[in-house]
Design a protein around this nucleic acid. Structure first.
Lengths: 220, 220
DNA sequence: TTAAAATTAAGTAAAATTACTTAGTTTTGT
DNA sequence: ACAAAACTAAGTAATTTTACTTAATTTTAA
């Protein structure tokens, strides 16, 4: 491979421009296209078939993990490097399952970034030190082995049903059981049950934790 | 001014590296130093006295607005360009009050960014179109004129007392009134009152909204 | 050194949540 | 068509929050 063709997907124009400038200062790397949301990323990859897609997790329309999953399924020749610009490490396992070839946390430097990019472009894998520790941890604990297939997917990491998701949506709109019941034309008791089950499934003990967890995992 | 000396403050190394690459591709701009949190930003500015400090709002230790306020007070010759990488426009007024010379939202492109930087470096002001609209709006409505001095500051936009902030902190740790009471050695009733007053001041009607608003405005 | 602000905490009471269990009905997948 | 899963909703009960008011004490700033 002579030149590495890269597609950048991030909803911050400036971050994209910055990374682009950074990459194009290197010889042997060309940013051939960009996308500002997940769906666009897929289209752009389809159009260009780059060597590497660099993708941020949090994006409108479709999140980075879903994008990676699609790419892994439909464009096997495209390698993916996931950037988590939002300090959390919680998507690592999901990213790997989705087929990501690399994963960097926000603490990553230019040097590490370039190293990762080259590694990924050449068909290798690159995960930051912290990430590797997480994987190891998951591996030894055996509770969520990376290769295991019965892990819940990112769209539904907690096994929520459609109705539960719908109700979660309403809860996140600050609606109480009465309002939810009215809106869905079910009894208040049913709304309560759904709420109760949601709490159990998400392992939280009040509204606030529910809200946080839901946002954290982008459940709605 | 021959060369514009810039200091970059952002907690994402990669974003910093990216913007640096972008800036240094331009002639006449030099990134002389960097900082990864607010306090560091102040130190670095003190040490270097750059022409422009480019600063993200959300940073550990001390947020961008506070940094700008300090700079405006103590290093008048340093111009400040605030980047809001997090879609919200709510800090515009505060940023301007704090003395920011420029303000860009995450939608800003490289071109706009460079334009803003040059403008700010030469002692001018630059605010994105959207931002200008917000200012105009505030101005005509008169409810928060930019020059008015009785607007609540960013650390305390809702006029919370110290105790209230402390209790808000505990609430955000998912503690209920009983737990808060025990921890602070006050009666449960007092904790309830504080919670009630917090809700009133933040104009929310349940825990979840409280949590959201608190995070939104970084009250803790 | 006062007045203002903040903190404390009681009373009252409605509303809502939390924490289950049981169980009938509907939908869905194979 | 049959079983499994999902959705519905009732009962019961403890706990918590929400929504005030009133008021004594303590702290703080002019």
């Amino acid at each position: 491979m002579d030149v590495i063709n890269v597609v950048l997907a991030d909803d911050h124009v400036l971050v994209r421009d910055g990374i682009k400038a950074l990459l194009e200062d290197q010889s042997g790397i060309v940013v051939i296209d960009e996308a500002s949301n997940g769906k666009e990323a897929l289209e752009v990859v389809k159009k260009n078939t780059p060597h590497v897609l660099i993708v941020d997790i949090r994006m409108p329309e479709m999140n980075g993990i879903e994008v990676v999953r699609e790419i892994t399924k439909s464009f096997k020749e495209v390698n993916t490097l996931v950037l988590s610009m939002h300090d959390s490490e919680e998507y690592v396992v999901q990213a790997i399952q989705a087929g990501a070839d690399g994963y960097l946390l926000k603490g990553a430097s230019k040097e590490e970034f370039l190293k990762a990019l080259h590694k990924v472009a050449s068909g290798g894998k690159y995960f930051t030190g912290d990430v590797s520790a997480i994987i190891m941890n998951n591996f030894v604990n055996g509770n969520a082995s990376v290769v295991s297939s019965n892990i819940k997917s990112i769209e539904d990491p907690f096994g929520l049903t459609k109705r539960e998701k719908q109700i979660l949506g309403l809860i996140l709109q600050f609606k109480n059981n009465k309002e939810i019941a009215d809106e869905l034309q079910i009894s208040k008791r049913t709304a309560e049950v759904h709420r109760f089950n949601l709490m159990k499934k998400l392992e939280v003990k009040n509204l606030m934790e529910l809200s946080n967890k839901a946002n954290e995992y982008q459940l709605v």
